[in-house]
Design a protein around this nucleic acid. Sequence first.
DNA 1: GTCTATAGGCGGATAGAC
DNA 2: GTCTATCCGCCTATAGAC
Lengths: 192, 192
Amino acid sequence: METYNRILESAAELFANQGFEAVSMRDIAKASHLKAPSLYNHFRDKNALYQSCLKFVFRQHNAQLQAVFDSQVSYETQLRGVIQVSLKRMADDQNFRLLIQRELLQNDQQRLKFLAQEVMADTCDQLEKILKHLSPEADHHFIITSIMSLVLFHIQIAPMREFLPSGTSQHLDIHYLSDQIFQLIYQTLLPS
Amino acid sequence: METYNRILESAAELFANQGFEAVSMRDIAKASHLKAPSLYNHFRDKNALYQSCLKFVFRQHNAQLQAVFDSQVSYETQLRGVIQVSLKRMADDQNFRLLIQRELLQNDQQRLKFLAQEVMADTCDQLEKILKHLSPEADHHFIITSIMSLVLFHIQIAPMREFLPSGTSQHLDIHYLSDQIFQLIYQTLLPS
DNA sequence: GTCTATAGGCGGATAGAC
DNA sequence: GTCTATCCGCCTATAGAC
């Protein structure tokens, strides 16, 4: 693999797990089998390297999701699919999840806007169409953000479940979790 | 105020907003109107100061919640109250919320255990009792963690809502949000 | 208890050889 | 493009005066 991408992969892993400040250029260099000064042949400085990491990890994240939106199945099944695929993505690509959550914690307007547009906007728009069909009257923004919340948090909290009451092994199973999240959301959309 | 508590308050603010690594002892000293070496008369090192911050901020967080659990109202009203009070606490005490979320990101077994026991366990146990009465058959662990998820996230993404589809000013109103979260959760508990 | 001075190490970043 | 050598500033933490 080219050096450039190898650096990005190593750096993404480190930044995701330790955060921007806790990772040094020497750490990234070591993980990339380089010395620190070599990094500066590929990136202007540490900040530019971090930003490139974000773009690298956030890229093409919606390929699987788009397949769900394009499928010719009922809106109910599409909603179930969006939740399943998103949850699986967060579980499989922890760097993706962690970098999103670290960006959310930064509380920087510009970076929040980038995150919203780069990672969330497309999926939100498609999801809104589904929800409009399932329940025109519902608060779609609240439902979409609630789905984001549940998908992120139920993966994040996995290592903590053993310390909370009634946590069982099924709560680590993403199929079980996505069923539960789907039901929680779906019943809101039905006429009461 | 005594120096000791003044340091903790300044440090909590800084750690919550910038994270452990990004805050220097000099920063904390300046915010406490001291020089850095003076901090070492009160805390062994930076780590001990951070841990003391956590204990300081996490302390007596459940006073208001306990009042809800002790009140003589219906279980439905108690559940609504728990959500309202938790959401308000997260909105009013951003340091509390941010420090929780930063601890969750650390992914350190010991610290997750501390967070679970110190901050969440009591409320979870009391909440479980309410849920058992409202719906003995439900997955209480899933419901409790979903409430935590929604309470944290709907406060966290406030500054991002303007960049997401259909975000309106009512989504910044904690009364509206707590009603929506309550309804989302409560309907799961009813016989279908 | 707070300060000044400072040790000792690690951080980001650059110069220049190969 | 990668390296060694190095600059220089900031970091945590300590020593010791007041």
